[in-house]
Structures are given as C-alpha cells and as structure tokens.
Nucleic acid binder design. Structure first.
Length: 357
DNA sequence: TCTGGGGTCCTAGGACCC
DNA sequence: TCTGGGGTCCTAGGACCC
C-alpha cells in the first residue's frame, strides 16, 4: 500500500457562541460579550462558556467561573447559552464544509477536520482552497473562522489555533517538528491539566522537551499514552478523518443553585432529568440497558453509580425507578449535594435490533 | 478562581463462563 | 481442595475534549 501524502484542514470558528450572538444583535458591536451561566451580580454558579475578544481584554476566559468574570468585567453583556440557535448555525456551516472534502469529521459544535488530499495537488493549492472556504463561510454566515493546514489532524488542529481569529496557518511536513518544538506540551491533543503537571514534574514543558525524551521513560510513566505522546511530539499522527460513529450515551445533569440535603428536592430533580433523557432517547428511537447516576457533594467529591438491567428497555418508568434506586445510597442528611445527573448507555445496536425483529 | 453540561475513551478489578 | 488461561461483561473512577 502506498503511503499517500495527506492534506488535512482543521477549521475552528472564532469565539463561536458570542460571534453568533453578535451577528444576531448588532447593538452588541464593540462591547464585551460573555455567554455562559447567569452571573447573578457576582453570586452566580457555573462558568464562562465563550467570550468575545473585547471581554478577553479584561482577562475573561472560557471555562472561568462566572463569578470571577463578573469581578473582571461586570459591564459586559451576559447571555445564556442558546444551544438551539448555535446548533442550527453549526449545521449550516458543516453543510458548507462537507462539500469541500473527501472525508469529513465534525469535532464538537464549531470545529471540523477535512481531508482534502484528492481535491488539491499541493499545499499552495490547499491554501487557496482554505481562503475560498473562509470566504464562503463568511459570505453565507457572516462569521469568521481559523484554519490550520498540515499533513495530519494533530498538527492541523494545533495550526488552526496558532493565529486566531481569522487565521490561516500552513505547516508542511518538513516544518512540523520545528513548528511544534517551542509550543507548550499542553497544546497536544489529550494532554490536559493533569498530564501537563505530571510532565512538568519530570522537567518537560514544551513539545520539544517531550520529543527529546526517551520513549521508554514515557511509556513506563504513562503507559500506552506515553508512547502516543512520544509520537505526537514528533508530529506523527496517522489517525483518519472520519465521521463520528453512532451515539454511545445520553445524559443530563444539573447543579443546584444552592447545595441541598433535601431528599425530595434531589429526587424531584432526578425525575426531571430522567424525563429529559427519556425524551431524547425516544426521539432517537433508542433502547438502553444501563442507567448511571452521578452525585457531586458540596466538596466536589463526585461519584457515579450504575446498573445494567437484565432487559432492554425504552420506558421512562424503568429509567426513573432505577435512577431513584441508585440514588438512595447517596442521600445522607449529613451531606449536601451540589449536582445530580442521569445517564443511559449500552444502547441496542442496529444488528441486535434487527435480530430481535 | 471555587469550579457547567454534554460527551468519549481508558484502566483496573471482579464476576462469570468454558 | 487450591488451582489455569482466555474471553466477555460489568462497574467505578478519572482524564480529556468542546
């Protein structure tokens, strides 16, 4: 099999949620805009989902507690997350992108990978194509995006983040290691806060440090992930661009406005979550076998507790009853609960479904 | 800084079967 | 009565993604 050179795009919409809101509300132009939890005059719970560049000037970042954002910038326009709208816009954008690629993979609500290997003959043509895509997205949606181009998904994704907003960064194969070396290890996919810290503990800060590290040292410390990190640090990633397979689980959870040890209140919330999950299950015509609940106490200690039923079901009553049963062990008068959640999984597969008919 | 909500994947131990 | 090796499923927890 010949190792054909690939050309991969990663496209990332610029501060998507706030960009959509600004488009819908021209009066927000020039103002800091923050989409996320209700700040409640600084007493709100939850986090910033997205903020625009004006808000970033105040030090606001996504993922930051909303109460902190309020301290930094109380004059911002604060908006709740309007998922329905963002999903609609996202679908329209994905339809534009899909037609430019041989293989397409949506990544979250506002990102996508495109394998354009057969559409262009080299990186110069790829760059022209990227400009064309950006122009069409802007034309049709009045939204900007950043694109990274490289020979694999890993580097394309890092490249799209390199110059934001409105960026276009090309990293050809020969430049990959040089491009990656000075960047913090955290920029690699799957290296999050914890792994970053563990790497720092052994003196690894940049991707270059990681690339120089002995592979066996990494695999001893991090197992399979260590081997993977070593490859990534050298810019090696052979994973294919492919449309996501079917859904594996459906869940809903809720953080209470105030931590509570009121059993009725908790069970009531649990029932409502079960109903929401069930609605989704019904809409997608799924049958499930496993029910899992999640509990987070006021100290953030979090537990999951699940049960696989001896039968396959799609009934709300089964879901509610199982969730309540699973919850019992966690209802303690001496512990306040911060969050509860309900998840269903272990869906019956298409083949099994056919076999049963 | 006092930490959302929706997901996926991995690991490790244990049950159970042959 | 103290003992294997493989396979699969289940459960709980944790890290990570957007």
């Amino acid at each position: 099999m010949s190792e054909r050179k690939r050309i991969i795009f990663h496209l990332d919409m610029d501060h998507f949620f706030t960009a959509v809101e600004e488009r819908e509300h021209p009066e927000f132009k020039g103002k800091p805009v923050i989409v996320g939890a209700d700040p409640k005059e600084g007493k709100g719970r939850g986090v910033v989902s997205t903020c625009n560049y004006e808000a970033r000037k105040f030090g606001v970042r996504s993922g930051m507690p909303i109460s902190r954002a309020w301290k930094l910038c109380s004059e911002a326009v604060y908006l709740p997350i309007n998922y329905e709208l963002y999903i609609k816009v996202s679908n329209e954008i994905m339809d534009i992108l899909r037609k430019y690629s041989d293989k397409f993979e949506q990544w979250g609500i506002d990102e996508a990978f495109l394998d354009v290997s057969s559409k262009v003959k080299d990186f110069a043509e790829a760059e022209t194509l990227a400009h064309k895509i950006k122009a069409e997205v802007y034309d049709k949606q009045k939204l900007t995006c950043s694109i990274g181009i490289s020979s694999n998904k890993l580097v394309a994704k890092i490249a799209s983040d390199f110059q934001k907003p409105g960026g276009l960064t090309v990293v050809q194969e020969e430049q990959v290691e040089k491009f990656l070396a000075p960047l913090p290890a955290r920029k690699l996919l799957w290296i999050g806060r914890k792994t970053e810290q563990r790497l720092a503990d052994i003196g690894i800060k940049t991707i270059g440090d990681l690339a120089r590290c002995d592979r066996t040292v990494l695999s001893e410390a991090f197992g399979v992930m260590g081997t993977q990190m070593c490859l990534m640090a050298h810019g090696i990633d052979r994973s294919e661009v492919e449309e996501r397979s079917r859904i594996k689980s459906i869940s809903r959870d809720v953080t209470f406005e105030k931590d509570t040890s009121d059993f009725d209140c908790v069970l009531q919330a649990l029932d409502e979550l079960s109903e929401e999950v069930h609605e989704d299950v019904a809409r997608q015509q799924l049958h499930f076998k496993t029910v899992t609940i999640r509990v987070r106490y006021e100290n953030f200690e979090t537990h999951t507790h699940g049960k696989t039923l001896p039968f396959i079901t799609n009934r709300l009553e089964d879901l509610k009853k199982t969730a309540r049963e699973l919850m019992r062990a966690y209802l303690r008068s001496d512990r306040k609960i911060r969050l509860v959640g309900v998840r269903v999984s272990n869906f019956i597969s298409g083949e099994k479904q056919k076999a049963l008919m």
